[in-house]
Design a protein around this nucleic acid. Structure first.
Lengths: 258, 258
DNA sequence: CGATCTCTGTACGACACCGTACCGAACACA
DNA sequence: TGTGTTCGGTACGGTGTCGTACAGAGATCG
């Protein structure tokens, strides 16, 4: 199921993954022998719900969704991450399974490590453990903000929040998503997504095309997301470091509206 | 603000707090000198949002709510705990503040410890750390289930879930809550709570009185809560131990309806 | 025992979102 | 260039929840 790349990790390349990039040379050396490059195609399940975890993955590109579901229907996203995070935080928390599913929402690549190896490294290095614990803290805040948004924010705000979070985690302003998919993530009907997206487009914040949403005015989008966006991102920057790529802000200028 | 009891902790009493009760003698000895009995009156704020934490608290009785809020309005509960948990899990995660508020929803008593002392104990003992990390994991799952319920469960299910969770954490079948309060916790209108409660009462699951809800049929209540109740509780029992008091199940028998 | 306050029950219009269904538009592939 | 498939826009009635408002029921206290 996992298609590994032939050669092993280059010795001294700077990882794209924010967590790995934050590590000291010693800590990186601790993990390095166990890290294996791996392709992460769309739809690939990184963490199976309620099953013992065999590997953790540090994404370098692409986007992962964490999904909680009651029974078959009623799947909903409780958090997402990309190169800022790690699939398998539960290992840091001293367990080996979770009732949630983690899968690739946008294809990419990453570095995977065996659960056993990661656990041992965490026990061996307090600084590595601290970093991963802090990341877990930011994810907990993200989940809490999701609970908050789900309870009281209208569909349009939740959509804007999701787009902003997605945008944080990739370089391009073009996001690859279908309405169908967004409706699943946000727990609303597909037509509700269509209408909400039209609102955002009417305000000149995004431009929607088939299977694609282009962010035109990021500050405006964040404003449209309401107060549910922000706290989790601030927590990340406080505890870990910069979340987004540097510069390359997509300002409100070019939105001369139609 | 904290009213301490005069004398310090009795030397060899068995703690009511589930986490403390799970500790080995060594780990308990590590914490013991720093534990201070403290009263926890209704409304007392244990964790102030976005402020450095000075103390953690292990509740022995009573109930705590963790609240996320955007701006002034729009407060909502993301999790709750009592003697099964700990106020200040963020210390375990290597940070010293959270954007959430933790306060006493039902008065009780507990044991508090200075943040510094708890942090040092966690660093000193891997087994203590493991237990507290695992508790954090169960709380993360609880928050995720809350996000799920908020997104897709109708008010009646969410109410039933909340009542069941509250019931888990105290001995009596009488829960002290007002509709007003429940509406705040669930993020719905107060009249919505009134109607939902009448539904549950009509089904013989609970008996509502002024400021009080008596659980008549716990299994029925859990069924009414839908699939959003269960996973977090299962996770607790798997990772930590029994959540509820032993025995004393309130069965469906005595509900001969009126 | 009456005054007062809190809590609960009820009402009514407004509206966001639901479930479902259908059709055109864009794309992919041969 | 034609054909099948996915994706997007739109429509309909139904309903759960909202915001607000008000009156009765139960506690509290001088």
């Amino acid at each position: 199921m996992l298609s590994l790349r032939p050669n092993s990790l280059p010795a001294h390349s700077i990882p794209q993954n924010r967590l790995l990039a934050q590590l000291s040379a010693d800590d990186l050396a601790l993990l390095h022998p166990h890290l294996q490059p791996v392709d992460l195609p769309v739809g690939m399940v990184l963490i199976e719900p309620d099953r013992p975890i065999t590997h953790a993955v540090f994404p370098e590109t692409g986007l992962c969704s964490v999904i909680a579901s009651m029974q078959e229907r009623n799947r909903i996203e409780i958090g997402l991450f990309g190169r800022d995070g790690l699939a398998g935080t539960v290992l840091v928390l001293g367990s080996n399974r979770v009732p949630h599913q983690t899968f690739m929402q946008v294809s990419g690549a990453g570095l995977r490590i065996e659960a056993e190896a990661l656990t041992q490294a965490i026990e061996a290095s307090a600084t590595l453990r601290l970093l991963l614990l802090r990341y877990t803290q930011t994810f907990l805040v993200q989940t809490a903000q999701t609970a908050l948004a789900n309870a009281s924010a209208p569909a349009e705000e939740r959509l804007a929040r999701w787009l902003a979070m997605y945008h944080d985690r990739q370089d391009s302003d073009d996001l690859s998503v279908t309405h169908e998919f967004l409706s699943l993530m946000l727990g609303v009907r597909r037509p509700t997504v269509t209408v909400a997206l039209q609102m955002l487009e009417g305000a000149g914040l995004v431009r929607a095309q088939r299977g694609r949403v282009r962010v035109l005015n990021r500050p405006g989008l964040i404003e449209a997301a309401g107060p549910a966006y922000g706290p989790a991102e601030a927590e990340y920057e406080r505890l870990i470091g910069p979340l987004r790529r540097n510069g390359a802000e997509s300002g409100p200028d070019q939105s001369s509206t139609s």
